[in-house]
Amino acid sequence: MNEAHDESACETDEREQLCLYIDEALTEQGVDVIALTARHGLGRHELTDQWRNW
Results as ranks from 00 to 15, higher is better:
Ala25Tyr: 12
Glu28Trp: 01
Ala9Tyr: 05
Gln29Trp: 05
Gln29Leu: 06
Glu11Ile: 03
Tyr21Arg: 14
Ser8His: 06
Leu18Val: 08
Ile22Gly: 00
Asp23Phe: 09
Met1Arg: 04
Ser8Trp: 03
Asp23Gln: 12
Gly30Met: 05
Glu24Gly: 05
Asn2Trp: 00
Ile22Thr: 01
Glu24Ile: 09
Val33Ile: 03
Ala4Pro: 08
Glu7Thr: 00
Val33Lys: 02
Glu28Arg: 06
Glu16Arg: 13
Ala4Asp: 14
Ser8Leu: 11
Ala4Cys: 13
Ser8Phe: 01
Ala9Ser: 03
Asp23Gly: 03
Cys10Asn: 02
Ala9Cys: 06
Ala9Arg: 10
Gln17Cys: 10
His5Glu: 07
Glu14Arg: 11
Gln29Met: 07
Thr12Tyr: 06
Asp23Leu: 10
Cys19Pro: 03
Glu11Asp: 11
His5Arg: 15
Glu24Asn: 10
Glu3Ile: 13
Asp13Met: 07
Ala9Pro: 02
Val33Pro: 02
Glu24Met: 11
Asn2Tyr: 03
Glu3Gly: 11
Thr12Arg: 09
Arg15Ser: 04
Leu20Arg: 11
Ala9Gln: 03
Asp6Asn: 15
Asp32Gln: 00
Gln17Gly: 08
Ala4Asn: 15
Glu3Ser: 13
Ala25Ser: 13
Asp23Glu: 15
Asp32Ile: 02
Glu3Thr: 09
Tyr21Ile: 09
Ile22His: 00
Glu7Pro: 01
Cys19Asp: 15
Asp32Glu: 00
Asp6Gly: 14
Glu16Pro: 01
Thr27Val: 06
Glu14Gly: 12
Glu16Ile: 10
Asp23Cys: 05
Ser8Glu: 13
Glu28Met: 01
Glu28Cys: 00
Asp23Tyr: 08
Asp13Lys: 07
Tyr21Ala: 11
Ser8Lys: 13
Val33Asn: 05
Arg15Lys: 11
Met1Ser: 04
Gln29Ile: 02
Val31Thr: 11
Ala25Thr: 13
Val31Phe: 03
Asp32Arg: 00
